[in-house]
Design a protein around this nucleic acid. Sequence first.
RNA 1: CGGGGUAUGGCGCAGUCUGGUAGCGCACCUGCUUUGGGAGCAGGGUGUCGGGAGUUCAAAUCUCUCUACCCCGACCA
Length: 574
Amino acid sequence: MRFSDTLIPTLKEAPAGAEIASHVLLVRGGFIRRLASGSYNWLPLGLRVLKNIERIAREELKRAGAQEILMPVVQPAELWRDSGRWDVMGPELLRLADRHGREYCLSPTQEEVVTDLVRRTVFSYRQLPCNLYHIQTKFRDEIRPRFGLMRAREFIMKDGYSFHLDEPSFERAYAAMHECYSRILERMGLRFRAVEADAGTIGDGESHEFHVLADSGEDTLVYSPASDYAANLDTVPAPALPDEPDAAGAEQLAMRKVPTPNAGTIDAVATLLDVPAARCVKTLIVYAEEGGLAALVLRGDHQLNEAKASRLAGIRRPFGFADEAQVRAELGVGVGSIGPVGLGLPLVVDGSAAALAHFVCGANEGGQHYTGVRWARDVGEVRVADIRNAVPGDTAPDGSGPLAFTRGIEVGHIFKLGTKYTQAMDVAVQDADGKGVAPLMGCYGFGISRMVAAVAEQSHDDDGIVWPPAVAPFDVHIVALNNIRSSAVSRTAATLHEALEAAGLETLLDDRDERPGVKFADADLIGIPHRVTVGERGLKDGVVEYRRRTGGEVERLRPEEIAPKLAAMIRPAA
RNA sequence: CGGGGUAUGGCGCAGUCUGGUAGCGCACCUGCUUUGGGAGCAGGGUGUCGGGAGUUCAAAUCUCUCUACCCCGACCA
């Protein structure tokens, strides 16, 4: 393809508001352009990358035994009422009505539609297992779209659903999808990690997420370097740490009230009283069920894990911190001075906080804290639960050693749904005895458009994107220097272009009337893996120059050597 | 939705505090020169200053209001 015939609007400057590398580089390189918040136009280069990712996904899905179908984007509300999700989904579900006032929504996912399809077409266990997927535009009215393609409202997802008569059949499919996603990511040459995850509202069974490793990732991943254990921070059990003995001698300590003016944070209190943060306790006020309040207590150096807290009986779902004004109104004290002593709210204490022999906490009185507090003597019986985030160094749940942390971009998520949807929507398949049973179901999401951003995020340098060969918009980029002036250059470049295309290599020929510097800079920005530079300087010696986007040596080769050499390297099988 | 911020030519920005009729860089068009890492000179076009209302002799600038976008939090592929 000729650069001059293609819409590749590269930009010298980063667009205002773009924060992360993938967003900046995808816009600057002319891959995408924003239409509205969280929605993007795909320009020729971006579409090529997207299609490559789709192609790899399709190939691997086929290998895993999934069948491709295509389901509608606009879906009738009644299906969502059937599953009970019309009311549960909330404002993230974009709803609309047709001219007759009938209600619809824009598809954020397809459990309802696919389950309905199966209920109308699959009647016998002989038709199972059945593994269906499609690749389609999704719409989720995200509270806050951000980071370009990373968290868009309109995006392209591959979503798949499988149905099974029994557990072993389901487990085989789940394992096959796990393998399938791993293969997709391996083929793209990415560093990634599959982790145990929280199923959230989609299912209530087990689930695994696939993360592309990148510092800019929105998720914290926790793993054990000494074993296979890896999980999303949300789900990692945190051990109850024993108290570190200290010189104070807990037995002799009495509870004392001390003034702590202007010390409303753990750090301030710890500094003022000269005690470690780990010996202070923080009390967080959250909404309980039935609109009341409850208190969660953690060691000062620990963070609340909201996913764990939201699973606690008696705590409101969705989880939320109490409004500060409401706290002050009901407890008569600001959030900086709350403590468990005589608080009068239901308490849940994290295991590590509960293990403290004595501790410092708010005195439920402005500017006052207690020191020398002991649970049994001063607070009484409390409910103890694991509600904190694991921290680096905590022992792994499998006992293999200390945990390590990294950041990831979630690009895939597979769920065990059990019969949640098939039961709710009355799917009954007859088994060998002629008895109707609700099939077991799994669902498997993979963010195709998010992958584009994830790849760029993991694979770029200061000059631009460095596309892995499997997803690159083109195989080869010919930079023709001063081709407008030099007929030798333009002729050689055109011949090379034809030879490469004839050899089955997708080739972009930069034939624009631009100065060399502009072309080199754009070539780096766009990030095509192989570059061939055609210039008069080389042509005088009868050569062109070959170089990889990843760097390395410049090779001087005769023009006719290029196509065979690159074809052998890029498509060895062909 | 809560908190913070921004909106001025295609893109990136200054001008707003202190009201006087819009500017810079890049891009774009023409010509000449230049040509292996984002060229130089000369000339040129480009703006309902996000929308509406108000104050004023006069509004990009002050007031009110609406909208869009961005950042931090909850949500998720």
